[in-house]
């Protein structure tokens, strides 16, 4: 079954500063949606609004047409990877995988480094290793949609390629909304790209629009 997540009518102000005013975003099963935007343009705020963690002046978040203001109460609908490490350091990988009802064997087959780490605590891993565990448990869990906020930060180039491959495989089961300033990786795997600029989302039809909207200076090879 194809699930659909739609977000619109989002209006967010911090004091007198308008952050989000004209947002439309659609994500479906088997699609990866990339969300790009300059720092402070409201990407993380928008993700928190979709997740239900941030109150705003108005919003409409619909899962298969049904409005849900507190998506975090229903992990079967949506899971969220924040841009920082969120797993308590004292937990072992064994505990984490049990909590999220995932098979550690599948994980270590994909990432052999973790073979001897089943009983290790999360805090004993390096920053990149922790991030891979977090991306894996969020992306692999039984949920309809996944939001990934800066998944590629702190990862080595090889790890990024592994994660991209894993996300591409997993998208057959769910929809992804991804933001990261390593935008070339986001462009590589995304089916649709939105740029958030001046409080509005712009669905990109031609890659050159990313430059017109002031997000990045594309090199000539990318445009071709």
């Amino acid at each position: 079954m194809k699930n659909k997540l739609e977000v619109d009518s989002v209006f967010l102000e911090f004091g007198n500063r308008r952050i989000l005013s004209d947002v439309y975003l659609k994500c479906e099963t088997d699609k990866i949606i990339g969300l790009l935007g300059r720092n402070g343009n409201g990407k993380t705020s928008l993700m928190n609004i979709i997740y239900g963690n941030l109150n705003c002046n108005s919003k409409s978040v619909r899962f298969n047409g049904e409005t849900n203001f507190k998506a975090y109460k229903k992990p079967e609908l949506l899971m969220y990877l924040p841009q920082f490490n969120f797993i308590p350091g004292s937990l072992s990988l064994k505990r984490i995988f049990k909590d999220y009802e995932l098979d550690f064997k599948d994980f270590e087959n994909r990432f052999p480094f973790y073979k001897s780490k089943y009983k290790s605590s999360f805090q004993s891993l390096s920053g990149g290793q922790r991030r891979i565990v977090e991306i894996y448990i969020i992306s692999k869990s039984k949920t309809q949609f996944v939001i990934l906020d800066e998944p590629f930060s702190h990862l080595s180039p090889i790890q990024i390629e592994e994660v991209k491959q894993f996300i591409l495989e997993e998208k057959t089961n769910k929809g992804f909304l991804i933001t990261d300033h390593m935008y070339q990786h986001v462009l590589n795997i995304s089916d649709d790209i939105y740029v958030l600029a001046n409080g509005k989302t712009h669905l990109i039809k031609d890659i050159i629009e990313i430059q017109y909207l002031g997000y990045a200076n594309l090199n000539i090879n990318m445009i071709k």
Binding site: N53, Y72, P75, M79, Y80, P82, F86, P88, I138
Partner: peptide, 15 residues
């Protein structure tokens, strides 16, 4: 201090 860890529980449906 533990603000970030709350996401671990939220992703498991505990607000």
């Amino acid at each position: 201090y533990k603000r970030k860890e709350l996401f671990y529980y939220q992703n498991l449906g505990i607000g």
